[in-house]
Amino acid sequence: MTEPNRLVEVNDLEVVFDTVEGRTHAVNGVSFSMDAGETVGIVGESGCGKSVMSLAMLQLVPRPHGKIARGSIIYYQRGKAVEITKLNPTGKAMRALRGNEMAMIFQEPMTSLNPVYTIGEQIMEVLRLHQKMDNTRAKQRAIEMLEKVGVPDAAQRVEEYPHQFSGGMRQRAMIAMALSCTPNLLVADEPTTALDVTIEAQILELLAELQRDINMAVLFISHDLKVIGEIADRVIVMYAGWVVEEAMREDIFQNPQHPYTRSLLAAIPRIGRRERLVSIPGRVPSLSQLPPGCFFAPRCPAATDQCRREEPQVFTVNQGHTVKCWNYWDKEVQKTS
């Protein structure tokens, strides 16, 4: 049943947070899969659940307020299925996976590095813990990794503290740390958002290169469709906790089906295009006050009564391209049946 290359399967995942305003569904029935070596991009606006999705992949959803309420994440460790959602988030088995098999990089490298340890010590910690290396070997490997991610004078800079690194260099150090145990899955949550465009280009290129080297799968999360388009093989569009569209990169850009995806594409200023930007009226709904029916209906130019009443089903446009929208059903599916 499973593909030989399958690395991760997420089935009907639901992540909830208990807040003073009641239970909110940050991730609401999300399913997707990833193959070894593949880059999957998750795109969406703030509050769409993309970051929570990325945390859930490593069982890092902040507790006790947040928890995985339903569904499963299955990780194939050398062909053997491990149900991550069944593991104790702080248990030994989960900790053995994190760092070694799956790693994560975050948006703001300054807050994710410890300011009182040197860059070298922080990379070495990972290696000592997961690869059981001794200090000398770990240090050697840390220098190697820093060289690999393009930090100049690595042997010297390994002794420096995070504040002595620039933003781009810190992100490189983070990547070095994440990749030091050659993980099979890298979850990258907005890794270039805080960086300048020339530095962003460097980091994206570096990620792609390292990925080819060690055949690692990358789950790349960003609010920026254009960045996603540079790096991802497949794109998942999220809105208010739902996956509203999933397709190969070319299909998302050339043949978007969901009104939200279309609006997002039309809302991005593109160089050389002179026509007025299409803005989406209103804003992303608060997760504690979701509208009935389709969550996008209040902002959707094509919403019908059915959209305001019933949650849309997921329809298949063609192989690998799915869309969660009643309009698609009206137009395409009904016509043919």
Partner: peptide, 26 residues
Amino acid sequence: EALLGAIPIGEKRVGEGKRLLLGGTV
């Protein structure tokens, strides 16, 4: 030129369209 070359365009680039990468930092 370097700034223009670094703008993400959301598509796979070919040949001459390859990003121009600026080394170093400001």
